[in-house]
Design a protein around this nucleic acid. Structure first.
Length: 309
DNA sequence: TAGTCGTGGTA
DNA sequence: TTACCAAGACT
């Protein structure tokens, strides 16, 4: 859960997840949709699927136990260099290095390394540096957690609190007063725009949903049928794309949903499905307990508001 | 190597 | 309002 996700947000979801799946065996026996539902709102849902697959591997290969070596850990789906090192050091006390966004920034500033933290060259430098520290530490677990915590609370990307930093005296960037631009920022790809035509039918207390495709955005999660395109479709075109729609009652509204890499223009249509349409009817009030994206919750909210109006 | 994969906080 | 980033991994 902590991959690319702040600990404060994980803290909201982790207890319930652990109650439902207290060990690898229970997770391995679960359905994918049940795991996704407890991941609701956290994003990067592939992590949930990988974790479940990893649990199944642990049951099959390790008797339901978590393997201890970095090499074995990294062979599990969704466990890369960072996660393997974090588990090996923090859970099992081994002298394994970790480099996350925080550690990369802290190390870069101490060395006043005026480069980006991405790429092979940076990786080599960061990981070998972290390795030396882990080997030298009395407790690699405490070292690793402290490095991340320092980066998260003191050595922040902008406006770092150097006055409170225990490493101020050893920090190259503090001495050079270069904290604001060290490390150099990683350039982001420009955001693309896509159009989602969301086809909503609410019958009484139920809404028609289907499973999204196995690849791409929100893959495998539940959603009202959505027609995706690069531009806005006419209702005629929309009907051709979804022959299981009997008629489009009206266009309700459009709003934007931002993800890191795209702007999703979501257009909500009130429709009537054919009786033979392959949609599953679920309770609107319980939708937020199912495997749906936040975008779907926005769609339903918009649909309900307009129905009242 | 560069793109993909969510959502929310911050300045 | 926009850009950037978060206890990354995978293709």
């Amino acid at each position: 859960m902590l991959q690319q996700t702040q600990a404060s947000r994980v803290a909201e979801k982790f207890p319930a997840f652990l109650r439902r799946f207290p060990n690898p065996k229970r997770l391995a026996e679960s359905t994918e949709l049940s795991v996704l539902s407890l991941w609701q709102g956290l994003g990067y849902y592939r992590r949930a699927k990988n974790l479940r697959a990893a649990a199944q591997m642990m049951v099959a290969q390790y008797g339901g136990r978590v393997p201890r070596s970095v090499q074995e850990l990294q062979a599990l789906p969704g466990i890369g260099r960072y996660s393997a090192g974090a588990i090996a050091s923090i859970a099992f006390g081994q002298a394994a290095p970790i480099v996350d966004g925080n550690v990369a920034r802290v190390l870069s500033r101490i060395a006043d390394r005026r480069e980006t933290t991405k790429g092979t060259i940076a990786d080599e430098w960061l990981w070998s540096t972290a390795q030396k520290l882990a080997l030298a530490a009395k407790s690699p677990a405490v070292l690793n957690e402290a490095m991340m915590e320092l980066g998260a609370t003191v050595c922040t990307p902008r406006a770092p609190r150097c006055g409170e930093c225990p490493l101020q005296r050893r920090c190259g960037s503090f001495k050079a007063n270069s904290q604001e631009f060290v490390p150099l920022s990683n350039s982001a790809a420009p955001r693309k725009t896509v159009v989602h035509h969301a086809c909503v039918e609410i019958r009484g207390s139920k809404i028609g949903v289907e499973t999204r495709p196995a690849t791409g955005l929100w893959s495998g999660m539940l959603s009202p049928p959505v027609v995706e395109s690069s531009s806005v479709y006419s209702t005629a075109k929309l009907l051709r794309e979804r022959p299981d729609i009997k008629r489009i009652k009206k266009f309700q509204r459009e709003f934007e949903f931002l993800t890191t890499h795209r702007t999703v223009r979501i257009r909500v249509y009130q429709v009537e499905f054919d009786s033979g349409a392959k949609v599953r009817w679920v309770d609107v009030a319980k939708l937020n307990k199912l495997a749906v994206s936040n975008a779907v919750l926005r769609i339903v909210k918009a649909a309900l508001q307009n129905m009242q109006a």
